[in-house]
Amino acid sequence: MTFSVIARDPATGELGIAVSSCILAVGRAVPSARPGVGVVAVQARSRRGLGQSLLAGLADGGDPADLVRAAAHAAEDVDRQIAVLDATGRVAADTGRGSFPVSGHLLGEQLSVQGNMLASPEVLPAMVQAFSAARGDLPDRLLAALTAGQDAGGDVRGRQSAALLVVSGTPASDEDDGVGMDLRVDDSGDPVAQLRMLRNLQRAYDERDYETLALFAPEGARDLYAALAASQRGDRTAVRAALEEMRTRPGWSAWLAAMAGDARLAGVSRLLE
């Protein structure tokens, strides 16, 4: 009922999973990850706690192949499908003998794709090929694989939800929880496309792409990003117009005053002096 991809980026050590399904909120059910430990996909009719159990096994030094083999022997999980990737790139997967057709998994270098109740046997090979051919960072490559799976038919029942989770290859700390990306589309007619849009929006926030945020951020904040974008361009008139529009809204003047020390607004203030 689901198709997913888990992978490690050998250049950065990041670990990630992208998944889509015709169930509500697949991001709640399938992906599990722990920075510096690994990432797990638990699909079909697997026990709900299996993902965390597998991560605990990885944290204790377990080998993915051994953990998958042990889980595969659980009689109550004949319809389960699991994939496990550790922080060094070791990967293993298993599709239970009772899993829904078309079902299966394919392993690659620090990579696994898996799915059940697929519309076509071409879904998983298309995902592997797309991931291998894609450029960009790990989230982009995971999304390329997920998109290829959807284009090849995806879930035979249709589309509803998707998720993208990427964590660091090193353990979390007090300063950094190690979660680089955690995006979910819980209910949509085209969840993979919506997930790509969210990833692009996240990129705009991360890279301070104020021109993009001025168009696609929540409506109440667009004037702020328009002012910041105009500041980057050195456009004093556009900065003033955006700020004046913001000041017409209740509470925004006090908010701007409170943000006076924010480095992002320093350029805006200089333009208006």
Rank of each mutant, 00 (worst) to 15 (best):
V39K: 05
L146E: 02
L272S: 05
A214K: 08
P10H: 13
V42K: 00
R97T: 15
D77I: 05
A144I: 07
L124E: 04
E76T: 12
E14G: 03
R233L: 10
A72E: 13
A93P: 03
G180K: 08
R240Q: 14
S99G: 10
P139T: 03
A258V: 11
S103K: 06
L228I: 06
L106P: 00
L138C: 08
L15E: 00
A92H: 00
G136F: 08
V192D: 00
L228Y: 03
S173D: 14
A119E: 05
R34Q: 11
D174G: 14
A266Q: 14
T170E: 10
S46P: 09
V192C: 02
Q129N: 08
F3L: 05
R196C: 02
T248H: 09
F100R: 04
S188P: 05
S99Y: 04
A242E: 06
G61A: 12
V78L: 14
D86H: 12
Q114L: 14
G261D: 12
A227P: 02
G89I: 13
R159I: 12
M117F: 05
G51P: 03
R236D: 10
P101R: 12
G149P: 00
A65R: 04
A152K: 03
Q232I: 08
G16R: 06
S132M: 15
L164A: 01
S99C: 12
G98C: 06
D190Y: 06
S112F: 08
V156Q: 13
A25G: 05
Q43P: 00
L198T: 07
R270F: 08
A148R: 06
A70S: 14
E273D: 10
S112T: 12
A74F: 10
R28G: 02
R48E: 08
P31M: 04
W255I: 13
